[in-house]
């Protein structure tokens, strides 16, 4: 893995994408962004090797976060890629569903940039 951690964030909210980009780039991450699960899969199709970790929302149009995780875990090259869910949801049922789909962890919005940073470094090393 290169020294700079490359994060793909997946969120349909432009405002949330802007917050995430600002928080992560200021902490030294390389950041790519997709607006939903479909866009993420399309982007990963051509750029997957470059990504070290994926941070995805759950509630998104076209393809939600659960389905995105399932799709990625079905591809050999993403079987071991860390995937964090970042969501306003916090129910045990939703977390269990994410874990079953293959998520690495769950962060409840509103996110704390330092806690997100710490979690990303922990799961990528």
């Amino acid at each position: 893995m290169s020294e700079t951690i490359h994060v793909l964030t997946v969120d349909d909210s432009a405002s949330m994408r802007a917050l995430l980009r600002a928080a992560l780039t200021s902490r030294g991450y390389e950041v790519s962004q997709a607006v939903d699960g479909v866009a993420a899969l399309e982007w990963l199709d051509g750029n997957g090797e470059a990504v070290d970790v994926i941070v995805t929302d759950i509630n998104m149009p076209r393809m939600d976060g659960f389905r995105l995780i399932e799709e990625l875990r079905g591809q050999a090259r993403f079987r071991d890629c860390p995937i964090l869910v970042l969501s306003t949801e916090s129910s045990d049922e939703k977390k269990a569903r994410a874990r079953s789909a293959g998520a690495t962890g769950w962060i409840v919005k509103p996110f704390d940039a330092d806690k997100l940073d710490s979690a990303l470094r922990r799961i990528t090393h």
Binding site: T104, G105, V108, P110, F111, D112, S118, I123
Partner: peptide, 13 residues
């Protein structure tokens, strides 16, 4: 000023 209680919590599976 900071995330409300419960917000930002990290749970690794």
């Amino acid at each position: 000023a900071r995330p409300m209680p419960g917000g930002g919590e990290v749970e690794l599976f």
